[in-house]
Amino acid sequence: MNSIYNCRLLMVDDYLEIRRMVTGILRQRGFSCLETAASCREAGEKVRSFRPDLMILDVMLPDGDGFSFMKELREWSNVPVLFLSAKDEDTDRLTGLGLGADDYITKPFLAEELILRLTAILKRTYFPLGQGAPARTTLTLGRRTINFDSGMVEWEGRSQALTAKELGILKKLAENKGNIVTFDSLCQAVWGDDYFGYENTLMVHIRRLRAKIEEDPSRPAWLLTARGLGYRLTKEENAR
């Protein structure tokens, strides 16, 4: 298996139309090894014969419920499970996740959401960091490149070190590039849960960070302020 699209997926739902629709969506997105089951018994047989890499499991099935089935399954198989159910109570969600499911999606769902969650599980399980594509450890902002491994800002053969706090702030912003990250999220990322009172300190760190990554820190082009909310790292195409 060299790609998530080669993963074997088992779709368990008693509703034929749903099985057809979901397999159709998956096939259209490039997944080719698909199998379906309409009951717990059939699902158990398919897990043994088809040996899926991921199972999409409904909760209400004609010969039992998905939770009990998963409980039994976990005694002899570790196949990742994504619940796809019309049961939307918090308790159902918690039961499913508590049994060790990798995710829980309620019907009706957006196809994109299903695909994103499913690929996230597959990547996490079969292509963790280091095994698949190399993790992105650099960030390019115009002429400057930030290397998160070394904690250095490099430009035109020169380099300048970032402090641990500046690096933490920049990482958080880079993870949400293009989006506003609130003061609270930034402070929490750097100082942990008990962050209240660090807002002013955060401003000092942002000012220093701008001095290192911006061409003109007084008119920042990359690290922008969202007034009253937090900061945002501009996507490259939006930057001046």
């Binding site: 509703y15 139309e17 749903i18 629709m21 979901v22 969506i25 019309a86 019907k107 009706p108 769902f109 957006l110 196809a111």
Partner: peptide, 8 residues
Amino acid sequence: TPLALIMG
């Protein structure tokens, strides 16, 4: 469930 089909 029917809504999931319509939406999908």
